[in-house]
């Protein structure tokens, strides 16, 4: 069984938001909400300010806190690691929105919760998620964690450092940030 995951090279990312725009059109995300956004973090560096452009979205955690809290089973985790949501079962109670430590979920104006799906429908067709495909800097890599020869493992292996957000929560995100500009890892409140 595949174990899908993504990596974003923060050294390459320029925060252009091509990924976020591609996501909007691919998934017909309505105005006012978004599945994917860029956080620009500016911190003092040794000789000059350090800037981290960090795309954020659902991390498809190995231990997703959003899944157990769902009272109807609308939110579920697939065998291949994708954390998905069935809108017809969703009562929009917001429990999963609050449970997500990364604020990756939101209320869709159609009356259900919504979030990144790693473009599950594109994976079916053997294509990369829309954000990965379009990324002009090639900062995004998508693949199978189990595939030791795959490009994802290669990207992880060649990275100077690999971080996930809020590791202390034990959620084991399946989106890895590579080469954070700060020597100690991700910037901001991490």
């Amino acid at each position: 069984m595949a174990r899908y995951a993504m990596a974003i090279d923060l050294e390459a990312c320029v925060g252009c938001a091509a990924c976020a725009v591609a996501c909007v059109t691919e998934n017909q995300v309505p105005p006012g909400v978004t599945r994917l956004w860029i956080r620009e973090i500016e911190e003092e560096g040794p000789s000059r300010p350090q800037v981290e452009f960090r795309p954020e979205q659902c991390y498809h955690c190995e231990n997703p806190p959003c899944v157990p809290v769902c009272p109807t089973g609308a939110t579920y985790q697939r065998q291949d690691g994708l954390v998905l949501l069935n809108p017809t079962k969703c009562i929009a109670c917001g429990a999963c929105v609050v449970a997500c430590p990364y604020d990756s979920r939101f209320l869709h104006p159609d009356g259900h919760v919504d979030k990144c799906t790693f473009c599950a429908h594109r994976l079916e067709a053997g294509r990369d998620p829309a954000c990965v495909e379009t990324c002009p800097t090639g900062a995004r890599v998508f693949g199978d964690l189990e595939d030791e020869e795959g490009r994802l493992r290669a990207a992880l292996a060649s990275a100077r450092r690999v971080d996930v957000r809020k590791p202390h929560l034990g959620t084991e995100p399946r989106l890895f940030y590579l080469n954070a500009p700060r020597a100690t890892g991700l910037g901001g409140e991490e």
Binding site: C16, A18, V21, A22, T25, E133, T134, P136
Partner: peptide, 8 residues
């Protein structure tokens, strides 16, 4: 690949 403006 496309930039954000092209995507949008």
């Amino acid at each position: 690949r496309l930039c954000p403006r092209g995507q949008g």
